[in-house]
Design a protein around this nucleic acid. Structure first.
Lengths: 145, 145
DNA sequence: GGTTGCGTTCGAGTAACTTTAAGGTGCTAT
DNA sequence: ATAGCACCTTAAAGTTACTCGAACGCAACC
C-alpha cells in the first residue's frame, strides 16, 4: 500500500510541512519518489513516522531522533544505547505527565472559581462584593509603591 | 519579601532569560527596579509568574497569556472570557496528557523490548537469531526496491 | 487550452526562548 | 586602591522545529 504526502499527513495527524521537514532531515530513509518526483510513502515509512511522532511529541529533539534512527539501522550492537535513550525518554515523559497534572490542578481551580462567579451572578445579580476574597489567588489591582 | 532574578529563577525552576523575556513582553507588570536598574521581584510577581509558567507549560502561546493577564487586570466583567479560556486550556491539557500517556505506552514497549534483548544476551550469548520476529515493530534493514 | 488541484523546491518568517557581547556596580582580597 | 569576581543590565544575534510564500511542474477536466 502506498500513500501521498497528504494521506500520510491525515493518517498521522501532522502537517505536510513536518513530514517534508523530517524527510529532508534524513529521518525517513525509505521514502521513494514517483515519475513526477513526488514522495511515495509505504507502510514501512508510516512505521518510522510513528516512532518520530512519538519521540517528538514526548519532547525528544530532532537531532536525538536522528541519532536513534541511526542506531536502529546500525544493528543489534547498539541496543544498549537505545535502551538508555528509551529509559531516559520514559522518565522524561513521566515527569512531563506529572507536571501537566499538577498544572491542570491550577487550571481546574480557575475554571471552578470562574464558574462560581458566573453562577452566583446569574442566580442573584446583587451579591455583595466580597470578590476580594473570592479572587484571593489573583491580583488585578496595582499594588501601591 | 523581595527577590533577585536569580532567586526567582531558582524558585520557579526556569531560566533568568525566560523571566526577562516575560517581563520585556509585559507579562510581569509590577516588577520594580532598584537604584542600579536591577529588577526587584516581590511575592505578587511570583504569583503572576506562577500563572505564566502554568499556562505556558500547558501550551498556551505567549500572546494569549498576555491577553489573559489583561483580562484579569481589566476587572470582573471579563470573567466570562476568562472562563472560556481556562475551559479550553483545561481541555487541551487533558488531551495532551492523554497523548503523552499513549506515547508512553510505545516507549514502555521499547524499553521492555530492549531490556529483553539485553537480558537474553547476558544469560546466553548464543540465542538463535530470531530477532527478526523480536523486532517486528522496528525496521533496520533496507527493503529492496 | 485554460484552470484547478496536487505535488515540488528554496528561501524567508515565526515563536519562544537562549546565548553572546559589551558594559555597569559592588564586594573582597592583595 | 585596584584587580578580580559575581551579579546585574541591554541589544542583537542565534537556535529549534516548524510554517509559510513564491514560483514552478504535471495531470485531469470542461
Amino acid at each position: 500500500m502506498s500513500y501521498t504526502i497528504q494521506e500520510v499527513a491525515k493518517k498521522m495527524n501532522i502537517s505536510t510541512y513536518s513530514i517534508r521537514y523530517y524527510h529532508d532531515h534524513g529521518m525517513l530513509p525509505f521514502v521513494k519518489r514517483d515519475a513526477n518526483n513526488n514522495r511515495v510513502f509505504e507502510d514501512v515509512d508510516l512505521e518510522w513516522l510513528k516512532i518520530i511522532v512519538c519521540l517528538r511529541s514526548t519532547g525528544m529533539p530532532v537531532e536525538r531522533i536522528q541519532h536513534y534512527l541511526e542506531l536502529v539501522q546500525a544493528g543489534e550492537e547498539t541496543v544498549p544505547e537505545r535502551y538508555d535513550m528509551m529509559k531516559a525518554q520514559q522518565q522524561r515523559t513521566l515527569n512531563e505527565i506529572n507536571d501537566l497534572q499538577s498544572h491542570l490542578k491550577m487550571i481546574n481551580y480557575k475554571v471552578d472559581h470562574y464558574a462560581d462567579i458566573l453562577i452566583n451572578h446569574k442566580v442573584d445579580d446583587f451579591v455583595p462584593s466580597n470578590m476580594a476574597e473570592a479572587e484571593q489567588h489573583e491580583v488585578y489591582q496595582q499594588n501601591e509603591s
